[in-house]
Write a protein that binds this DNA or RNA. Structure first.
Length: 622
RNA sequence: GGGAUGGUGGUUAAGUUGGUUAUAACGCCGGCCUGUCACGCCGGAGGUCGCGGGUUCGAGCCCCGUCCGUCCCGCCA
């Protein structure tokens, strides 16, 4: 039923009276708090916002008024408006108000630290929309809020008022906008897929949703739209994208939330290069439009094998050198026991101009570092410093034969003043540890100093098709529909570990921001992959029968990619945590501190779902 | 599941070897102040030291358990 607007009823016929009665809310704001400049001087304006700070000088009160676009200084004084001044005197932090006043040029008194610092508003009229309790923490205009994350999450709506957070979510909004614009204009359909899907064991742990209508049965929240988007290709939609929520019930990290957002893309008749093209364009558009940064026209490609060999990582930070140098061949029979018995010996050469700060004590600390389990757990760190005369110091120098020293120095490009750091261990351990050591030295030795290319995108290609789980069985490295390279199909049976896939990741400054693959559309190849994975026909039918059935009806060759929107937002904003670009994130233990979720469901609800719970550990919530 | 680290007025932190009345800054409240901009000056209020147990003449501090935050490993594209 239509309701009569109250102001409509009250509003008298005559114009001047209307002005006096109308609330400032009805008048509407003329500007935001971020846009007034010197050229607006003299204008009469209405601003809405929150009281950011108040500086009471007695007969003159300055108030910083804040909205999402900025902060503008208000000036209250009795000569500007008696009533306004009285109200200004009563204002407190975070009151929500409207003001009317005249823009004044601050002249030589301007605050050059503020974009609106050239002007202030001489306030003649104030309307207090609502008063605020003293907030539990100060809404600081930068990162100095001081409040612990615990408290910030509990009062998330206040935390989000902070200008830095407002900026983060502006960027996030723009990422969505430009993604939709570019991909839609590029011929992609934005299509939706279900969040509640069939439960398929394997891969990430699923959140389960009990079915009321089907007692004892469950949906799963989608880990990703993977299978549905492939079915879209069977349906002939040709190019699809979606900005979609995904759910994974795995333990959280700084850059991992239980629900997160993907830019999900799939294309028919795809090759890896044909996927890279629109994704590169997308990154270029985002960086140009949002950060005004011109990215390279194409991003370099590097095979997984090369990335592992040169950086020990499938998501290398290529903003600096310090690459891994394999020296296993050169130190075979070197005379040094540590090297001779090892499966793989590899090292880093810290150049002379950076090696100065690597004192004996600093290297001892690095030795401790490489031994830690989270660094990869090497047995130790062999090292040597090369003297002016080319001699090697320490145990490595003493034990490694001169001809081996020469060969190693040559291979590593090492000269006087360099420090060489070696790990001798199993292949995987050596590479993992050196990767971690390399990143540690990046920070410790400030190796990014003077870096003139702050955004280094990289495509990592040709991932292994399979990896081994702890039981030694092959499991899909990506997912079981990933296509192997055509020339590797025969290896699926003879040597699965050697098979490389048409799978790729997009890496930015050492962060994986997306990944995808060309999918299998040939049932013979699919069958071989299932066999290599130890999946019987029955199991495959049970898990993916509907997809295999669909693939009997002329599936196009297709492939796609998924980008982590949250991670992209985190990198673009410089946020330190995913939580700073997700409006209402969960804590590391998966709780929402503001609402208290998750909570225990009551019995009637559980009964509806035919659920009973087992003994629940009683929590002491103090 | 494991490791590390933190929890002390509203907030952020200090708190020595276990010892008298638990400090400080910011915030808050009151007063003064007409050019501040993290305004300034004067005064004031505000504490179950996360929770439970133990050791002790005595615990913020030591021990055990537990809850919560953060980071990492396992796990996870």
């Amino acid at each position: 039923m239509a309701r009569k607007r109250r102001t409509g009823v009250l509003r008298p016929a005559s114009g001047w009276l209307t002005l006096r009665v109308m609330s400032l809310l009805e008048v509407g704001r003329t500007h935001t708090c971020g846009e007034l400049r010197r050229e607006h001087a003299g204008a009469s304006v209405v601003l809405f916002g929150w009281v950011h700070r108040r500086r009471d000088l007695g007969a003159r009160i300055f108030v910083q008024l804040r909205d999402r676009d900025g902060i503008t200084q208000l000036d209250f004084a009795a000569e500007l408006g008696e009533e306004a001044y009285k109200l200004g005197d009563s204002l407190r932090s975070e009151d929500c108000i409207a003001i009317r006043g005249k823009v004044a040029d601050r002249g030589t008194n301007a605050n050059t630290d503020m974009v609106t610092g050239e002007i202030e508003i001489k306030v003649s009229e104030v309307e207090v929309f609502s008063k605020s309790q003293t907030p539990p923490f100060v809404i600081a205009d930068d990162d100095r809020t001081g409040a612990t994350e615990n408290l910030r999450l509990q009062y998330r709506y206040l935390d989000l008022r902070r200008p830095v957070m407002q900026r983060n979510f502006r960027v996030r909004s723009q990422i969505g906008y430009y993604t939709r614009k570019l991909l839609t204009e590029g011929g992609f359909y934005e299509l939706e897929t279900p969040a509640m899907v069939k439960y398929t064991p394997g891969g990430a742990r699923n959140f389960l949703v009990p079915s009321r209508i089907h007692p004892g049965q469950f949906y799963a929240l989608a880990e990703s739209p993977q299978i549905y988007k492939q079915l879209f290709m069977v349906s002939g939609f040709d190019k699809y994208f979606q900005i979609t929520r995904c759910f994974r019930d795995e333990d959280l990290r700084n850059d991992r939330q239980p629900e997160f957002t993907q830019i999900d893309v799939e294309m028919s008749f795809a090759t890896p290069e044909r996927i890279f093209e629109p994704m590169t364009a997308l990154m270029r558009t985002l960086w140009k439009e949002i950060l005004d940064v011109e990215l390279a026209e194409t991003f370099p490609r590097m095979s997984w094998d090369e990335a592992m060999a040169r950086y020990g990582s499938d998501k290398p930070d290529v903003r600096f050198g310090l690459e891994l140098q394999a020296v296993t061949e050169h130190v075979r029979d070197s005379g040094f026991k540590v090297f001779d018995g090892a499966e793989c010996v590899s090292g880093l050469c810290v150049p002379a101009d950076k090696a100065g700060s690597l004192s004996r004590g600093a290297i001892d600390k690095l030795t401790e570092f490489v031994k830690q389990r989270e660094s990869g757990g090497a047995k130790g760190l062999a090292w040597t410093r090369i003297g002016e005369d080319g001699s090697w110091s320490g145990a490595v120098g003493k034990n490694v034969k001169p001809e081996a020293q020469k060969a190693v120095a040559e291979a590593m490009g090492a000269g006087p003043g360099c420090v060489l750091l070696f790990i001798a261990d199993a292949w995987e351990t050596t590479h993992t540890v050196l990767c971690n050591l390399r990143l540690k030295l990046r920070d410790q030795l400030d190796l990014l100093a003077g870096n003139d290319k702050p955004w280094q995108f990289l495509w990592i290609t040709d991932f292994p098709m399979f990896e081994k789980n702890e039981a030694g069985q092959f499991v899909a490295a990506h997912h079981p529909f990933t296509s192997p390279h055509d020339e590797h199909v025969d290896l699926l049976v003879s040597d699965p570990g050697a098979v490389r896939a048409k799978a790729y990741d997009l890496v930015l400054n050492g962060n994986e921001i997306g990944g995808g693959s060309i999918r299998i559309h040939n049932s013979d190849v699919q069958a071989k992959v299932f066999t290599a994975l130890g999946l019987s026909d029955e199991e495959a039918q049970f898990k993916f029968g509907f997809l295999l059935e669909a693939f009997k009806y002329g599936p196009p060759p297709h492939g796609g990619i998924a980008l982590g929107l949250d991670r992209v937002a985190m990198l673009m904003t410089g946020a330190e945590s995913l939580r700073d670009v997700i409006a209402f994130p969960k804590t590391q233990r998966g709780q929402d501190l503001m609402t208290g979720a998750p909570t225990i469901a009551d019995e009637p609800q559980l009964a509806d779902l035919y659920l009973t719970h087992r003994d629940i550990p009683v929590k002491d919530n103090s």
